[in-house]
Write a protein that binds this DNA or RNA. Sequence first.
DNA 1: TCGGAGTGATACGGATACGTTTCGCAACAA
DNA 2: TTGTTGCGAAACGTATCCGTATCACTCCGA
Lengths: 222, 222
Amino acid sequence: MSTSTSINWRSVTRENDFMPDAATVATDASGSFEQDPRVERSRRIILEAVLAELGDVGYGSMTIEGVAARAGVGKSTIYRHWPGKLELVEDAFRTVKAELAVPEHGSIRDRVVSVLEQVADLVAESTYSACMPALIEASERDPSVRDFHCRFSTERRAVLVSLIRSAVESGELRAGTDPEILVDALVGPILMRRLILGLPITRAIATELVDQLLPLASTPAG
Amino acid sequence: MSTSTSINWRSVTRENDFMPDAATVATDASGSFEQDPRVERSRRIILEAVLAELGDVGYGSMTIEGVAARAGVGKSTIYRHWPGKLELVEDAFRTVKAELAVPEHGSIRDRVVSVLEQVADLVAESTYSACMPALIEASERDPSVRDFHCRFSTERRAVLVSLIRSAVESGELRAGTDPEILVDALVGPILMRRLILGLPITRAIATELVDQLLPLASTPAG
DNA sequence: TCGGAGTGATACGGATACGTTTCGCAACAA
DNA sequence: TTGTTGCGAAACGTATCCGTATCACTCCGA
């Protein structure tokens, strides 16, 4: 490493232990430092291939050579920028997007249904869904993947938690409702179907969950 | 195989495509056919080692040699009885026990709390818990593991579902309650904490879940 | 006692993946 | 244009695991 002038992305983005001469690099809005567009292209292609491999063969069976072959790049291009499998997987997961849009208007029931339908769509079919088993497996083996995974999941959950919490405070939901437990009770069944029960996931499930579980203050008995 | 007189456990227990001379073998209550106690001992030791390996390194990274070393047996002893990794893992998972005892008396609230506390204990720490990520991963890669996993989980779930259903029918729980959704809402959060959120699992969580989610007919507003 | 069967150890050839190195080519910045 | 740099391809030695085969030993049932 000390004799190389190439950029190790992981070092740059996570530890800042190497910084190219500030006068010679451009810093874009997303915080990446690139001189040569070939680098960014390789990075994107490789990380996409990592996610595809993780979805196909899982964490334990994923190999650098398999990723290189899938990405259509040389093995050396991967080793040039990442120390090993672990850091590669970490970076790959960081590119996963699972954004949830919260409607600004409407009843709490309809707003929660909307968000939960997005969750159902995401879990039913997405890059994230395909990688979930591999992500759970990798989290079990490596603490830094675990940290990332937990932070990722908790941030997604926070969107729904704050929505529920504000509805409790405004009186739309029954007082005494624990927002975090309620959110887990809404989202948990969807994940269970995907990971444990092997049952299909539809948008209708989102509606059923909300109507069964949401403790509406106006109609406490359903 | 056709020249061997040894017993392939998988064949015997799953496909019945080989049956030793009935006059020379003993059939015990659990349906296993054994002449030589060495066989049963090997089987037990090996399958225990498989579960330990699965918990430690996961499905993709588990190797026959690793299992043999851990079990303290020769590799040949494993290959003598199982065709390969897949069948070995399937048999290993079949030995996992996760029984739930349902109290016969008490309020529905207390009975559900009792069962859910058992679930929490199981998910917090058990052989099953240790193997869950590997089981989820293996289910994703192989249909027969998936079938087993889904059946296993669904049978456990059925215990709680029937408990809830009978409470709905007896009027203890609010009419209109969907037993399956409610059970998933109770159990799902526990699995989420274990697999996704990385949060601790305590018995207190079982109580909180029940008191937040159980739609008691007598006190519909909690 | 005795023959048969299961056992652990060991070795094998083949395959795969590791991480490194070298090399000529093409894309890049200046 | 020119020097630099990232690139893909290939080969390298090492290590691991595959699935099979052999062997001497020991345990078992008859």
